[in-house]
């Protein structure tokens, strides 16, 4: 506005106004509620949290001295548990991303083929995505039950395996067990996105490469994978971001245990604040996580924009 008005004045013509008077106030009225809600409920809390991270607050919600301190950050960064949690988070995210995309890609490839009942199969495969998180956690907790669970029953069918692993109490198995649950919950999303990606690859490309003499493997490597590059990037980042922030599954199934084997960063933040009443360090860690989340989101926004321009 300002720009066009000034330039109009420079050109020696009269300044111009909106053709329709409603155009002047309507946008402001429509944007206002959003700005209020986001400022009060997102921006102020986030800034408040960063402020707490520089104080010696102990119990959440209690008064704290105003003195500025970096002690929280120091204690968080020197705590070996933090680095262990980072490792657990990385394994959890990476495991989920790899598993979810592998299963999702196979499913999507199957769904691109015509077979009777494809619509029904497509619908069934979306179900894990649709189930509430708490329900998914409960079902798998029941299936992982060491004495009566179906998982151990199924394992009994495998030759030479006699043990009855206690999935959620065994430090070596708890993390993989929850990764499997997370893969199950997220792979339908990967499937739908990859399916959309596969369907956007023009048939002519396949026909052309077939005429050029490419076999099915070459066609997959030369046409399918490059065609999926953009959607794959989107899925990888979204799954990483979601896994990184996942709280419900770990909180409900292992509470970060056994022996910290599933203590991801977000779970650790929660327990610092609500179990050990170390609000300062909790918020310091939260602020660091926020930084990571901002970076991941920027990366994501970049990838989406690049794909739209292409």
């Amino acid at each position: 506005m300002a720009l066009t008005q000034t330039s109009a004045r420079v050109a020696g013509v009269r300044t111009v106004h909106y053709a329709d008077s409603q155009d002047r106030w309507l946008p402001a009225v429509m944007v206002l509620p959003f700005l209020l809600a986001i400022t009060a409920l997102v921006i102020i809390p986030l800034l408040w949290g960063i402020r707490i991270s520089f104080t010696n607050s102990r119990i959440i919600g209690r008064a704290f001295t105003e003195a500025f301190t970096l002690a929280n950050y120091q204690s968080v960064l020197t705590d070996p548990d933090t680095w262990h949690s980072l490792y657990v988070t990385a394994v959890f995210s990476l495991g989920t991303v790899i598993g979810s995309i592998a299963l999702g890609l196979v499913t999507a490839l199957v769904l691109t083929r015509a077979f009777p009942g494809r619509g029904i199969v497509r619908t069934l495969i979306i179900l894990p995505w649709a189930v509430p998180h708490v329900v998914a956690a409960l079902i798998w907790q029941w299936m992982y039950n060491p004495n009566y669970g179906v998982v151990n029953y199924a394992i009994g069918w495998i030759p030479f395996v006699t043990s009855q692993p206690n999935w959620l109490s065994d430090p070596n198995l708890a993390l993989p067990a929850i990764i499997i649950l997370n893969i199950w919950k997220t792979y339908p999303f990967a499937t739908l996105v990859l399916l959309a990606g596969l369907q956007s690859i023009p048939d002519e490309l396949y026909e052309a490469s077939e005429i050029d003499g490419a076999g099915p493997v070459r066609r997959f490597l030369d046409i399918t994978l490059p065609g999926l590059k953009h959607v794959l990037a989107i899925v990888v980042l979204l799954l990483t971001i979601w896994s990184f922030g996942n709280f419900v599954f770990i909180f409900l199934m292992t509470q970060g245990g056994p022996a910290g084997a599933t203590n991801t960063l977000v779970v650790k933040v929660y327990f610092e604040a609500f179990r050990f009443f170390r609000a300062g360090p909790a918020f310091a860690m939260g602020s660091l996580l926020l930084l990571v989340a901002v970076l991941l989101t920027l990366a994501y926004a970049f990838i989406v924009r690049r794909g739209k321009d292409a």
Binding site: T4, S7, A8, A11, V13, V16, H17, Y18, A19, D20
Partner: peptide
């Protein structure tokens, strides 16, 4: 009238 003239 769908675009505003910036001059003239």
């Amino acid at each position: 009238g769908l675009e505003r003239a910036t001059g003239g």
